[in-house]
């Protein structure tokens, strides 16, 4: 626990750096002290509380699950039982005996295809629907109903249609992620201020220029809201879909582990799924904040 120590050091380092800046112009070290050290301490301030909470939770879990007769494994038991899975995500020991990293990548590949399709088609459809009051009124209730259907409910239909597990899983991702993207894009397009439309009219932008230069940037905050909901749903759906369709994905791994009563492995897989989902969400949020910089502020 040397994090707090680092923090106090940083606090005292700031005035020193400022004094230095006044006396002699040494841009590099003062830049380091003035910018990087506070950044590091801010980072530590963000990191320390969650780490402490995780530590506490692990302790509580350990206490609860080390009683005789506990149904779930304790953290130390998981550590010993699933040691290979935890320390090396990318081992290959046989066709069905591979690290969880590989499995996550397989699942991510499916998500990438399904989500990518959902993104392109969702934005395209949303743009068309958002243009027309009638399409919006007619289709919006239908979409609102369709989007509440659980991803798994689509699976039998897609299996029947595609007769193969790989495209079926991808279709389930697609159909899960596409609704929020369509709906949010359409709302974004509807909400393009008349002012921007007038600017486009005065400039005589053609439809293609209008699409790229006005519609997409103006609706971007809405589109990214849809994309962000979509990526979360995709990740939820793939795990469920893979449990049923098999293959080497992370979802099937859980199913397989359950069938052979490897509870520790399942818990490790859950941690992987959670972390990957978190990272996916953050990536989309980051892209959104870069691209929509300045758009929402007016």
């Amino acid at each position: 626990m040397n994090m707090p120590a680092l923090k106090t050091q940083a606090a005292t380092a700031i005035p020193v750096a400022a004094g230095e800046l006044l006396r002699l112009p040494m841009p590099k070290p003062s830049y380091f002290k003035a910018r990087l050290v506070p950044a590091a301490s801010e980072f530590a301030a963000k990191l320390v509380p969650p780490l402490i909470m995780i530590g506490l939770l692990l302790v509580v879990w350990q206490i609860l699950c080390s009683k005789p007769g506990a149904t779930l494994p304790s953290p130390t038991k998981i550590w010993t039982e699933a040691y290979d899975l935890i320390v090396d995500p990318f081992f290959v020991a046989g066709p069905q005996d591979i690290g969880l990293g590989w499995r996550v990548l397989t699942s991510l590949q499916r998500v990438a295809i399904g989500y990518g399709l959902a993104g392109v088609i969702g934005i395209a459809l949303g743009t068309i629907i958002g243009q027309s009051v009638w399409a919006m009124r007619g289709l919006d209730p239908i979409f609102q109903v369709l989007r509440t259907i659980s991803p798994l409910a689509w699976l039998p239909i897609s299996l029947a249609a595609f007769r193969d597990s790989q495209p079926s899983a991808i279709f389930v991702i697609f159909i899960t992620a596409v609704w929020p993207i369509i709906i949010n894009t359409a709302v974004g397009i509807r909400n393009i201020p008349q002012d921007y439309r007038n600017v486009a009219l005065v400039l005589r932008l053609n439809p293609l220029e209008f699409f790229w230069k006005i519609m997409i940037p103006s609706a971007a905050p809405y589109i990214f809201t849809g994309l962000r909901i979509g990526i979360g749903l995709s990740w939820l759906a793939i795990v469920a879909a893979e449990m049923l369709t098999g293959g080497v994905g992370i979802g099937f791994f859980i199913w397989d582990a359950w069938n052979s009563s490897r509870l520790s492995d399942i818990i490790v897989a859950l941690v992987y799924i959670g972390l990957v989902g978190f990272i996916l969400d953050r990536i989309v949020a980051l892209v959104a904040s870069i691209i929509t910089r300045g758009t929402s502020a007016n």
């Binding site: 007038n198 005065v202 400039l203 910089r293 502020a297």
Partner: peptide, 20 residues
């Protein structure tokens, strides 16, 4: 009978595109 750049408008609320 249609808008065009030969009649440029400065709108009441500036109407700048905020992403540019």
């Amino acid at each position: 009978n249609d808008p065009g750049p030969d009649r440029a408008v400065v709108f009441q609320n500036h109407s700048l595109l905020p992403w540019l």
